[in-house]
């Protein structure tokens, strides 16, 4: 997702315009903060930070966390239908990782003063967004491999620069996540490669179909073009974001174009070709109307994903309450005995 959060603020945002500085003391703090950012230094949880820096991070980290959690749903659908025990074990481990990544990120956001309940409430009420890529359906087994190759591949490209984010707890979480995530992309490519090399014609057609459907949404994961990305400049200034949407997208296209050749699939873009002069691949125009339509809640699976998420949370309420009641009860006898 990941830089997408900065461009699709949801309704919890507030304005990101810098507020006028209030006092000499605050001006001094601001100056120290700016100097530390300029030096490439890190900001820790208890350090002074501008309100908008805090707000922007809470929004970005929580939406990143939501994306990991909602991202478990499209692939989770395939755990019971994985073609072999090996693929099933791999997929279970991957989906468990996504859950873990969501937890690292929620914990990082909590260091900024928000609570887990507030964040979950924002997701469930629709105030907070998650990556729009997860609002597309996983129709066949090839979709699972393609998500690993393209969706996780795009996510990794987005996430690696976040390991150097100026907010240290986020950067530390991202280091853990990136270390674990590369298996996600490799297992996806591996699953597709097996079908392309050893599979039947029908299986190869299935892979091509999945790639056709996931290619453009994957490119949209990097967010709107730089020229239209209103919050990018401030986030770059704050060292939250290090590389622009368009630069990351280009890097991804260049890598994926080569990988597609190895795989033996065609990327669904007639304008995709190597440009010797630029040293990059040219590619066709992205349908941003589709992107905004999905962000606005009208993608193929928006309602289903959120409903599944809310249901899982509601169905688990009794477990959370029982665990608290049990912990209370364990403490109780000691009080009575005293």
């Amino acid at each position: 997702m990941y830089t997408q959060a900065m461009d699709t603020l949801g309704k919890e945002g507030g304005d990101a315009a810098p507020r006028p500085v209030r006092s000499a003391a605050e001006a001094a703090l601001q100056q120290r903060f700016d100097a530390r950012i300029d030096d490439g230094g890190f900001i820790e949880a208890k350090d002074w930070m501008p309100d908008n820096y805090r707000k922007t991070l809470v929004r970005q980290i929580s939406q990143h966390a939501h994306s990991e959690i909602v991202g478990m749903l499209p692939e989770g659908n395939w755990i019971t239908r994985a073609p072999t025990l090996k693929r099933k074990a791999i997929l279970l481990a991957k989906v468990q990782d996504e859950g873990g990544h969501g937890l690292y990120l929620y914990a990082a956001a909590e260091t900024l003063g928000t609570s887990r309940d507030e964040m979950i409430d924002a997701l469930h009420s629709g105030k907070a967004k998650y990556s729009s890529i997860f609002n597309y359906p996983t129709l066949t087994w090839a979709d699972v491999g393609t998500i690993g190759w393209l969706v996780d591949g795009a996510a990794i490209m987005n996430q690696v620069p976040l390991c150097r984010c100026s907010y240290a707890p986020y950067a530390r979480a991202m280091i853990r996540i990136c270390r674990e995530e590369s298996f996600h992309q490799r297992q996806g490519f591996d699953a597709l490669l097996v079908m392309m090399r050893d599979g039947s014609d029908a299986q190869r057609a299935m892979v091509q179909d999945a790639v056709n459907r996931w290619w453009w949404p994957s490119l949209m994961m990097f967010g709107p073009p730089d020229a239209e990305s209103t919050h990018s400049t401030q986030s770059m200034r704050w060292g939250i974001k290090r590389i622009s949407n368009d630069d990351l997208r280009q890097k991804f296209v260049d890598a994926a174009a080569e990988q597609a050749k190895v795989l033996g699939v065609t990327l669904p873009d007639p304008e995709l070709k190597w440009n010797e002069a630029r040293g990059h691949h040219d590619f066709g125009a992205i349908d941003w109307a589709e992107f905004w339509n999905v962000v606005d809640g009208n993608g193929p699976c928006n309602r289903e994903r959120l409903a599944d998420r809310v249901k899982a949370w509601d169905d688990g309420a009794w477990v959370r309450e029982a665990a608290l009641a049990h912990a209370d009860k364990q403490r109780q006898p000691m009080k009575e005995a005293a």
Binding site: G100, L103, Y104, A107, E110, R116, R172, A173, R176, A323, L324, H326, A327, Q330
Partner: peptide
């Protein structure tokens, strides 16, 4: 890192998983 748990035993268990 950190995590939420109702008691020490659960915290240890979740720490292992997460």
């Amino acid at each position: 890192g950190s995590l939420h748990a109702t008691d020490a035993q659960m915290a240890i268990q979740l720490a292992r998983d997460v």
